[in-house]
Simulated assay, not measured.
Amino acid sequence: MLRHIEITECPRDAMQGWHRPIDTSEKVNYLKALLKVGFHSLDCGSFVSPKAIPQMADTATVLSEISAETGTNKLLVIVANERGGEQAVLQDKVTYLGFPFSISPTFQQLNTNSTIEESWQRVQRIYKLCRLHNKQLVVYISMAFGNPYGDEYNAEIVYNWVNKMKELGVNTISLADTVGLSTPEQVFDITKKVIDNSPGVNIGVHLHSTPQMALAKIEAAYNAGCNKFDSAIGGIGGCPMAQNDLVGNIDTSTLLYFFQDKQVQLEIDTEAYRNAQAIAASIFY
C-alpha cells in the first residue's frame, strides 16, 4: 500500500519516569540499538530542569555518544522553555525540538511551571530559535482528548490552538493523549478534522492507552488519515507530572502488528528490532 508512515520511537518518554536511575551507558547502548531499527525518528532526550526530570539530566552527554551513528534517523528532544531551547539548538544532530503545549491550564502549570499564555509566548520564542538554527519545532497539543483535572475541555479548544500554531508557522503538530483518556471515536473525529483543515501540516498522534484499547485507537487515527505515530517498545512511559497512575505509550509492537495487518510497507529491520526489545527488557525491569 502506497502510504508513507512515520514512526517516532519514544525512549525518552519511557525512561523519564522510570523508578530507578538509568545509567548513561545503558541509555547510549539502547539508543544505538534503536538507531539500527529504521524508525523515522527517535524522541531521545530532553533539555529541561534536572530537578523536575532528573532521569534526563545527561541528555547532552548521551547525544554526544550517539551522534556519529544516527544515519538517516532524525533526533527529537523535548524542551519546556527558551533556556532549554537554547541548549537544544546547539546539538548538531538534533532535527526536532518538541514543546509540550497543554490545553489544560492545570497540567501546563504542573508540567512546565507556566500558564497557557506564558507557554504560548515560549512557543513563539522557541520557534524563532529553531528558524535561526535550522531546526524544526514540533508542538504537542497535550491533553488534546480531555484531562483528569476538571479543566474546561471541548474539541473547539483543540482546533483553536492548532490553528494558532499553524498561523505561527509550526508545520508538525502532534495530538497527545497524555493520560490515556481518549476513546477511539474521539481520536477519529478530532484527528480527522485537524488533518482535513491542515493542508501542508504534518499532523501526528502521541497516544497513551491500555493494551486493550491500543489497536482501536491506532485504527481510529489511521482511518482519520494520520500517517505519523509515536510509540515506545513495551508500551512503557507516561509523564511523571501528570498523575500517579501512569498510562503507558502505545506499544511499538502493537503499532507494527497493525501496519503489517494493513499490508503497509515499513522499513523496519526485524532483527535489529528484536535486539532493541531485548535491551529494553534489561533496562525496564
Score class of each variant (00 low, 15 high):
Met1Lys: 11
Ile22Ala: 02
Thr24Leu: 08
Tyr30Ile: 01
Leu31Val: 05
Leu34Phe: 11
Leu34Gly: 03
His40Ile: 04
Ser49Val: 11
Pro50Leu: 09
Thr59His: 03
Ala68Tyr: 04
Glu69Leu: 01
Leu75Trp: 05
Leu75Arg: 06
Asn81Ile: 03
Arg83Lys: 14
Thr95Leu: 10
Leu97Ser: 07
Phe99Trp: 09
Pro100Met: 07
Ser104Ile: 04
Leu110Gln: 15
Leu110Ser: 09
Gln124Leu: 12
Arg125Gly: 02
Tyr127Ser: 02
Lys128Cys: 06
Cys130Pro: 00
Phe145Pro: 02
Phe145Ser: 04
Gly146Trp: 14
Gly146Asp: 08
Tyr153Ser: 00
Tyr153Trp: 15
Ile157Leu: 12
Lys164Met: 11
Val170Phe: 14
Asn171Phe: 11
Thr172Leu: 06
Thr172Trp: 11
Asp177Gln: 08
Val179Arg: 01
Lys193Ser: 08
Gly200Ser: 09
Ile203Arg: 07
Val205Tyr: 09
Met213His: 09
Leu215Trp: 13
Ala216Leu: 12
Ala221Met: 11
Ala221Gly: 08
Cys226Glu: 09
Cys226Asp: 12
Ile233Thr: 03
Gly234Thr: 02
Cys239Ala: 08
Met241Asp: 06
Met241Tyr: 13
Gln243Phe: 08
Ile250Ala: 02
Leu255Phe: 00
Phe259Arg: 06
Gln260Ile: 00
Gln260Glu: 13
Glu267Phe: 07
Gln277Glu: 15
Ala278Thr: 15
Ala281Ile: 13
Ser282Pro: 03
